[in-house]
Deep mutational scan, measured.
Amino acid sequence: SMGQARALMGLSAQLDEELDFREGDVITIIGVPEPGWFEGELEGRRGIFPEGFVELLGPLR
């Protein structure tokens, strides 16, 4: 894990590789696949999402 982030708003996945989450969910960050995107894990599910949907809870490791 690289850190954690809290969802500022919900994301309804449009693509298979995207992660669904609700506002307030705390997501474990597991990677940065490309600039502007995070890869995360939530409730046993993994996927990517735009960084603008979340606030980091501390610096990434």
Results as ranks from 00 to 15, higher is better:
Ile29Arg: 02
Pro59His: 07
Glu43Phe: 11
Gly3Asn: 13
Glu34Asn: 09
Leu60Glu: 13
Pro59Asn: 05
Ala5Asp: 03
Gly31Arg: 10
Glu18Asp: 10
Leu42Met: 06
Val54Ala: 12
Gly10Ala: 15
Gln4Ala: 06
Val32Thr: 14
Asp20Ser: 15
Glu34Phe: 11
Gly58Cys: 11
Leu8Asp: 02
Glu17His: 14
Asp16Trp: 12
Glu23Phe: 03
Ile48Glu: 03
Asp16Cys: 07
Gln4Phe: 14
Glu55Phe: 00
Asp20Gln: 12
Leu8Pro: 15
Met9Asp: 02
Asp20Leu: 04
Phe53Arg: 07
Gly58Lys: 10
Phe49Cys: 04
Gln4Lys: 14
Asp16Leu: 02
Leu15Trp: 03
Phe53Leu: 11
Phe53Ser: 13
Asp25Arg: 02
Asp20Lys: 08
Ala7Met: 03
Gly44Met: 08
Gly3Arg: 03
Trp37Tyr: 12
Arg61Ser: 13
Arg46Met: 05
Val32Asp: 05
Arg61Ala: 12
Ala5Pro: 00
Glu43Lys: 14
Glu41Gly: 07
Leu56Gln: 03
Glu55Gly: 05
Leu11Asn: 15
Ser1Val: 14
Met2Arg: 08
Trp37Glu: 06
Phe21Asp: 00
Gly58Gln: 11
Ile29Cys: 06
Arg45Val: 01
Leu15Cys: 13
Gly31Met: 15
Asp16Asn: 09
Ala7Ser: 02
Glu51Cys: 15
Phe53Ala: 12
Glu55Gln: 09
Met9Glu: 09
Leu60Asp: 13
Pro59Ile: 00
Gly40His: 09
Glu39Lys: 10
Trp37Gln: 04
Gly3Trp: 06
Ala13Gly: 10
Asp16Val: 09
Glu23Trp: 02
Leu56Phe: 10
Pro35Lys: 13
Val32Lys: 11
Ser12Arg: 09
Leu11Lys: 15
Gln14Cys: 08
Gly31Glu: 00
Leu56Asn: 00
Glu43Pro: 02
Leu56Tyr: 01
Leu19Arg: 05
Phe53Pro: 07
Ile30Tyr: 07
Leu42Glu: 06
Met2Glu: 04
Leu56Met: 07
Glu41Lys: 01
Leu11Ser: 15
Asp25Tyr: 01
Glu43Cys: 12
Gly47Tyr: 00
Gly47Asn: 01
Glu17Asn: 14
Ile27Ala: 00
Arg22Tyr: 09
Ser1Ala: 15
Ala7Gly: 01
Asp16Pro: 14
Ala13Val: 09
Arg45Gln: 12
Met9Leu: 10
Ile30Thr: 13
Asp25Thr: 03
Phe49Val: 03
Met2Ser: 06
Leu56Ala: 08
Leu60Met: 13
Ala5Asn: 03
Leu11Asp: 06
Ser1Met: 14
Phe53Met: 07
Ile29Leu: 08
Gly44Asn: 02
Ser1Lys: 01
Glu34Asp: 06
Phe49Lys: 05
Ala13Leu: 00
Glu23Lys: 13
Glu55Pro: 02
Glu55Ile: 07
Leu42Phe: 12
Leu11Trp: 09
Arg61Met: 10
Arg46Glu: 05
Val54Asp: 02
Ile29His: 03
Leu60Trp: 08
Glu18Leu: 09
Asp16Gln: 01
Ile48Arg: 14
Gly10Arg: 09
Leu56His: 06
Gln14Thr: 14
Met9Arg: 15
Asp20Pro: 03
Gly44Trp: 01
Pro59Lys: 01
Ile48Thr: 06
Arg45Ser: 04
Phe38Ser: 00
Gln4Cys: 11
Glu23Pro: 13
Ile27His: 04
Phe21Gly: 02
Glu18Gly: 10
Gln4Ser: 12
Thr28Trp: 02
Asp16Ala: 08
Met2Lys: 03
Val54Leu: 01
Ser12His: 15
Ala5Trp: 05
Arg22Thr: 12
Met9Val: 14
Glu43Leu: 06
Gly31Trp: 00
Phe21Asn: 05
Gln4Asp: 04
Ala13Ile: 01
Glu23Gly: 00
Leu11Gly: 02
Arg22Gly: 10
Gln14Lys: 12
Leu57Ser: 13
Glu43Ile: 03
Asp25Ser: 08
Arg22Glu: 08
Arg46Gly: 00
Ala13His: 10
Ala7Ile: 06
Gly47Met: 02
Phe38Arg: 11
Arg46Lys: 10
Asp20Ile: 01
Glu39Tyr: 13
Glu18Tyr: 12
Ile30Arg: 10
Ala5Tyr: 02
Ala5Leu: 06
Gly44Ser: 07
Arg6Leu: 08
Glu17Lys: 11
Arg45Pro: 03
Ala7Arg: 07
Glu39Phe: 07
Val32Ile: 13
Met2Gly: 04
Leu8Met: 04
Pro59Asp: 09
Trp37Arg: 10
Glu17Trp: 10
Gly44Ile: 03
Ile29Phe: 01
Phe53Ile: 12
Leu60Cys: 10
Met2Tyr: 10
Ile30Lys: 12
Ser1Arg: 09
Ala7Pro: 12
Asp20Tyr: 10
Glu23Leu: 03
Arg46Phe: 08
Met2Asp: 11
Gly3Ser: 03
Gly31His: 05
Val32Gln: 10
Leu19Met: 03
Glu39Asn: 00
Leu60Thr: 12
Phe53Trp: 15
Arg22Met: 12
Ile29Ala: 04
Gly40Thr: 02
Arg45Thr: 03
Ile48Met: 07
Thr28Cys: 00
Ala5Met: 01
Pro59Gln: 05
Ile48Leu: 05
Glu18Ser: 10
Gly44Val: 01
Met9Gln: 14
Leu15Arg: 15
Phe21Gln: 01
Gly40Trp: 14
Phe53Asn: 10
Ser12Tyr: 11
Leu15Gly: 15
Ile27Asn: 05
Ala5Arg: 06
Ile30Val: 14
Ser1Ile: 15
Ala13Asp: 04
Ile27Ser: 02
Gly40Val: 07
Val54Met: 04
Glu18Phe: 12
Asp25Leu: 01
Thr28Glu: 14
Leu8Asn: 04
Glu51Gly: 13
Gln4Ile: 13
Ile48Val: 14
Arg46His: 10
Ser1His: 12
Gly36Asn: 15
Arg22Phe: 08
Arg6Thr: 07
Ser12Trp: 07
Gln4Thr: 14
Asp25Gln: 06
Phe49Ser: 03
Gly10Asn: 15
Gly47Pro: 04
Ser12Cys: 09
Val26Ile: 13
Asp20Thr: 14
Thr28Arg: 09
Gln4Met: 13
Glu51Arg: 14
Gly36Val: 04
Asp20Asn: 13
Ala13Trp: 04
Met9Phe: 14
Phe38His: 14
Glu18Pro: 09
Gly3Asp: 04
Gly10Ser: 13
Phe21Met: 03
Gly40Asp: 09
Arg6Gln: 06
Glu23Gln: 14
Glu43Gly: 11
Gly31Cys: 06
Leu8Lys: 12
Arg6Val: 14
Leu15Ala: 15
Leu42Tyr: 08
Leu11Ile: 05
Ile27Gly: 04
Gly44Thr: 02
Gln14Arg: 15
Arg6Asp: 00
Phe21Pro: 03
Gly3Thr: 05
Gly58Pro: 13
Met2Pro: 09
Arg6Ile: 11
Ile48Asn: 05
Glu41Val: 08
Glu39Cys: 12
Gly3Cys: 06
Met9His: 11
Arg45Asp: 04
Ala5Gln: 04
Asp25Pro: 00
Gln14Gly: 13
Glu17Gly: 14
Gln14Met: 08
Leu8Cys: 06
Gly10Val: 05
Glu34Ala: 07
Leu15Ser: 15
Asp16Ser: 13
Leu42Arg: 09
Trp37Pro: 07
Val32Tyr: 11
Ser12Asp: 14
Arg61Asp: 13
Gly44Asp: 05
Gly47Ser: 06
Arg22Leu: 10
Glu18Gln: 15
Gly52Ser: 08
